[in-house]
Amino acid sequence: MQEQDILNQYQSVSEDNVKEWFKVGVVEDFPENSGACIKYKTKQIAVYNFVRTGKWYATQNLCPHKMEMVLSLGMIGDKDGVPKVACPMHKKNFSLEDGSNLGGEDLKIATYPVKIKKGNVYIGFSD
């Protein structure tokens, strides 16, 4: 796949336009206060489990900076209250709420809704 095609397959999905809630495992499969990666069709999605707030987030695994499949390996936390992931490669920070770059750069990652039901973890896709 060409670089552009790889990038283009990641488009943010909001709860309203979810076509499929895809089950990616049970809560225990996902490390606490960390990221982990799942596969959906040809996509790699990073899933983050914030135990302290009980919140879950999902984004593309691809860091748009150098096109590396690494975001699930990054450290998570918050900046001024906004939940974020720091890419392990060059520590660029991305908001897990809207995928924007918190350093103000013109880099953006796609975000996906996560749903927890009866101990199962689902991610919403529109394709």
């Binding site: 914030f50 302290r52 707030t53 990054g74 450290m75 998570i76 936390g77 918050d78 900046k79 209250g81 939940p83 974020k84 720091a86 520590k91």
Partner: peptide, 10 residues
């Protein structure tokens, strides 16, 4: 306070 980051965790 807050939820930590890539500086204070390591």
């Amino acid at each position: 306070e807050g939820h930590g980051c890539e500086i204070c965790k390591p």
